[in-house]
Design a protein around this nucleic acid. Sequence first.
DNA 1: ATCCTAGACTTACCTCGTAAAGTCGGGGGG
DNA 2: CCCCCCGACTTTACGAGGTAAGTCTAGGAT
Lengths: 214, 214
Amino acid sequence: MSRNNAGLSPELIVTEALRIIDGMGLRNLTMRRLGDALKVEAMAIYHHFPLGKEQLYGAIVEYISDPARAAAPSGAEESGEEPGQDPRPWDERLRAWAHDYRAALLRHSGALPLMIHRRPDTAAALRSAELHYAAFLEAGLPPEEVPGAAAALDSYVLGAVVHQVRAEGLPSRDPAEVDGRFPTVAALRGVAVDHDRVFAAGLDALLAGLTARG
Amino acid sequence: MSRNNAGLSPELIVTEALRIIDGMGLRNLTMRRLGDALKVEAMAIYHHFPLGKEQLYGAIVEYISDPARAAAPSGAEESGEEPGQDPRPWDERLRAWAHDYRAALLRHSGALPLMIHRRPDTAAALRSAELHYAAFLEAGLPPEEVPGAAAALDSYVLGAVVHQVRAEGLPSRDPAEVDGRFPTVAALRGVAVDHDRVFAAGLDALLAGLTARG
DNA sequence: ATCCTAGACTTACCTCGTAAAGTCGGGGGG
DNA sequence: CCCCCCGACTTTACGAGGTAAGTCTAGGAT
């Protein structure tokens, strides 16, 4: 590694950025700190992301939401082929996708704000859409209802993660008191929410509602 | 209004901040710009939000997610009383809440990233929870399942808004091409998604799945 | 040997959040 | 009527952030 070849690559930069986000939050991801972590001056990152931090953000979002990474987290399969047909039934495929996607979002929940205003038109997003569409077609949905069903499924998973992250966030200073104005909340205060279980139950409810139809 | 009374108030600051967010996006909400919009120096805002921008963010989130604002957008009702019992059936109340909440989130979608890591322990959040819990109890759910159902409902609405905002965001530079790798996506490319309709259908599916139980 | 080029480093500029101290005006006590 | 005090805004200033522009070095091509 001479002075002007630090071995940078977009992938390496993204994974290091995610380490920073996971460790100290999105607002502490700065170009200078990222450069330090990569043993490089901040401006070196601009050679791999010439459009600056926004482009880096986009790469981070695509990295997190790529279903191919969840399916094959280790190195390439033997022949490096396209994944081909998944032999599992449609609902099992969708559940597996939802589980993996949720896990990736929870692992990198600090990056969630980055996802909100980015259109899912990347290769990773198309891989997800292909998976969803094929599954819902196999489930017997009429084609004109498939994109809507896929949208509802995607909404649910992302929403569940955001809900859980909100619930587990740091309490705000002077949280509102649960007093007589909120009798039902007070009565049910002792009921704990198991996020994994609620997620699975809601997913079942949604899939059933989307595909069972007269 | 003399020099040292510009008529500032937290509410006024929040609404002006939202105007900026809606108009030019969250990253353009700066203290200096907000001060300019309020005809005040930036530091004046710190007298009403002494903890700085994070506190302002919290106030914005609470403003957006307060169901009381949607229920009574105009001035106080005659006697300024508590709203009391809502005579509508439980599912109608939940649908109305979901509709109003979704509308508020879509109107201020630029503020969505602020909501992700804030625990919903404000007075506004408790008002929502009270509404949800009472409705699901009225629907006949066993009490230990009520918080989970409320979580699933909240997840769905927030997720649907985020999904829609993502879909309608600006396209990224060099979006991925829909080629032979994505045959099902290509085949269904012409199907448009009506977000309002998909939202209503998914909401029906979810409510039915959550409350219909053996 | 000389030059070119790509990639990495350096410098510099402007903006941002906000700490600290200053300033102003009105209202209440003497 | 005067004074002073306090709350509301302003001034000043600093450190950190993103990034444009320029510089440097090593390695290959001539």
